[in-house]
Amino acid sequence: MPIESDHRGSDSPYIARVWRGRTSGQESLTSVATSNWELVFWEFEGAVHAALRGPETIASTARIAGDSEAFGITFAHGTSMPHLPIARLVDAEVESPYADGRRFVLRGEEWEIPGFESAEDFVDKLVRADVLTRDPLVDEVVWGGIAKVGARSVQRRVVTATGLTQGAIRQIDRARHAAVLLGEGAPALDVVHRLGYYDQPHLARSLQRFIGRTATRLRRRDGDEPLSLLYKIEGDERF
């Protein structure tokens, strides 16, 4: 397998997922849409890089050349960096001006590059330094909770913290959920009913836009280029 990956959950309210991956050879990767932003570190041809990658609103194809290793912290909805408006990161990334094997620059300061098992400690340092903040209401309403403030205030706070509307987040995350179910062998019609799509053409359009795959290709998977990280979230009751 030219692309290998591992990921885990986190008990930090600031983190949605921690992941790491390795590539070998020259491959293309389908980068599926995601409603979360992340901090990514990777090594390629002996050089270390660090970047903030924003939410992706459509699926795209990325080229991967040579051997490389990557590690990332995917942040929970509502987590943000006040010095960098999240709107600047939607469908984009901002690379650190400096990174080596040990340290990188963020907000004009040097930080030690964390590891797969030390992501929470690193995020705690960012929180204590006011580099990271969190609006708990955003994560709550995205997961289906009922806010105690008006709808306009909710929408404003969601967009400020995530760069996306609640509707966009729901569409992206529903498509990702559908892709996981189809990859596990669920019939397309069952996915339509379970996740609240109008019909199979509605599901097909969503998959093509956000995942870059048809339901048939997701079920077969043979011969397809790899997908970026997809994972099943236990207890997801939004759909």
Results as ranks from 00 to 15, higher is better:
residue 15 I to E: 04
residue 200 Q to N: 03
residue 172 I to L: 08
residue 32 V to T: 15
residue 10 S to Q: 10
residue 213 R to L: 02
residue 31 S to W: 09
residue 211 I to T: 05
residue 233 I to H: 11
residue 173 D to W: 04
residue 166 Q to D: 08
residue 83 H to I: 02
residue 5 S to M: 14
residue 27 E to Q: 14
residue 88 R to P: 00
residue 28 S to W: 09
residue 166 Q to A: 10
residue 232 K to Y: 14
residue 220 R to Y: 03
residue 208 Q to I: 06
residue 124 D to H: 13
residue 92 A to F: 02
residue 49 H to N: 12
residue 64 I to T: 05
residue 56 E to D: 06
residue 164 L to E: 01
residue 125 K to E: 15
residue 70 A to S: 12
residue 79 T to P: 08
residue 54 G to F: 04
residue 211 I to W: 07
residue 81 M to H: 04
residue 133 T to S: 10
residue 10 S to G: 02
residue 13 P to F: 06
residue 99 A to H: 07
residue 25 G to T: 03
residue 110 E to C: 10
residue 63 R to H: 12
residue 235 G to D: 08
residue 77 H to P: 07
residue 151 A to K: 12
residue 34 T to M: 05
residue 237 E to C: 11
residue 98 Y to W: 11
residue 30 T to A: 10
residue 80 S to T: 11
residue 42 W to P: 08
residue 134 R to V: 07
residue 45 E to H: 08
residue 236 D to N: 10
residue 94 V to H: 15
residue 181 L to V: 05
residue 29 L to I: 04
residue 197 Y to E: 01
residue 78 G to M: 01
residue 88 R to Q: 07
residue 193 H to Q: 09
residue 111 W to C: 01
residue 205 R to I: 00
residue 232 K to I: 10
residue 230 L to S: 02
residue 47 A to S: 09
residue 167 G to D: 14
residue 91 D to H: 05
residue 68 S to N: 06
residue 65 A to H: 06
residue 81 M to Y: 07
residue 205 R to G: 11
residue 57 T to H: 06
residue 185 G to M: 04
residue 134 R to K: 10
residue 15 I to V: 12
residue 190 D to A: 11
residue 152 R to M: 12
residue 27 E to A: 15
residue 109 E to A: 13
residue 223 G to A: 06
residue 140 E to C: 11
residue 219 R to P: 03
residue 21 G to Y: 04
residue 108 G to R: 01
residue 20 R to H: 13
residue 235 G to S: 03
residue 198 Y to F: 11
residue 55 P to C: 08
